[in-house]
Design a binder for these strands. Structure first.
Lengths: 201, 201
DNA sequence: TAAGATACTGAACGAAAGTTCAGTAAACGG
DNA sequence: CCGTTTACTGAACTTTCGTTCAGTATCTTA
């Protein structure tokens, strides 16, 4: 690979990285191209040299993120024996990786916004993927007998809600990773065991 | 009260109502003054006659909402005997009232944005209020012996996360109230009893 | 080393959105 | 019934922001 190609790829990654950070922190609309140039040192034009548009940049980040996340999960999931362990591992990966998920913060800005259908399409596919993932996670716990039988599909929504909400809270309060990890751990404990003293109502 | 004062108040409420609806649906930034004029029939100037600015309008809605919600909760909470019932009542009220909460959708757009400190101040006060409310709810369950003893403060964060996330998911998927209610009910059940077959790990 | 490709700059453009304001009509009060 | 206040209009102004593009410098390649 050329020195030029190398440098080019580096700046593209630098732009993507800075943009992801800003989208997460400020949301899609609130992040301006100007902000990204300020964070990278690159010029406006350069951003448009590497990416088709602001939307394109965002979409690129969504794709990249989902690919990376699933790869990492694949690498890790075989380590977990029980469904409970799996849940904790899932939560841990979410904190470590997902606290920077551009989707979580900005997706709502798209829904209800006047965007082209391909973006809405992509976002709803991603949401569906998440729900399917959650459902499988829960279903596997039911199949193994660790979890009570139940409507895994609806429980997947509950899990997704918990994940989305916690991610927002953790990001907002500028809490460090350790704090977030501890909150997520507690959340999974509650999810598994409940608050009540005497379960099986 | 005058015929004029009456009409004035009516239009102010009409503007506030339409704005709240739009903020909830589209977010803060994505909702333009133009959108509000289109939804009310009022002119741009008229909106600025009744409200100081877009921010002021949003802040007004936040205040109004929080006041109303707490009043409604006060009216209802004495109906519930057990902590579990309280939780379900809490969830129900959230679905019925909070699915239109302007904070939930738009607050993240403020955090990290370049807003005056009084707005950030107000938002963090509201978040703190929510957490305190949740904490008291959980603590009362612990005090009565229904819930296992635990860190009510951190559990309040988990609860808030669940609430925020579910609200977002429910709004997004255009689900009707019944569907949302059923999801929330399930969420509270899980929160109380957990997923696992054998609790008390 | 010279021609061409590639990476990048920054000023300029146009659309969109928040805000203002001169003007108008209706209601109020004396 | 007339002057004053109140409610409201909508065009114009200003700022912000995404996008474009002519130009420049650096690297590649033949």
């Amino acid at each position: 690979m050329n020195k030029k190609q190398l440098q080019s790829e580096q700046t593209r990654k630098r732009i993507a990285e800075a943009a992801r950070h800003l989208f997460v922190q400020k949301g899609y609309k609130a992040t301006s191209i100007e902000d990204i140039t300020a964070a990278t040192g690159s010029s406006k034009g350069n951003i448009y040299y590497h990416f088709k548009s602001k939307e394109g940049l965002f979409l690129y980040l969504l794709d990249e993120w989902d690919r990376d996340w699933f790869d990492k999960w694949r690498d890790k999931q075989h380590l977990y024996g029980s469904a409970a362990e799996k849940m904790h591992g899932f939560a841990e990966l979410l904190v470590i990786e997902d606290l920077n998920h551009p989707l979580t913060q900005a997706a709502d800005e798209f829904f209800g916004g006047e965007f082209e259908s391909d973006i809405i399409e992509k976002l709803s596919v991603m949401t569906a993927d998440h729900l399917r993932f959650n459902q499988e996670l829960i279903q596997s716990g039911m199949d193994s007998g660790e979890f009570r039988a139940g409507d895994a599909k609806q429980l997947a929504i509950v899990l997704e809600g918990l994940v989305i909400g916690l991610s927002r809270l953790s990001r907002r309060s500028n809490s460090n990773i350790d704090e977030a990890l501890s909150t997520y751990r507690l959340a999974v404990d509650v999810l598994l065991n409940g608050l009540a003293k005497a379960p099986h109502t």
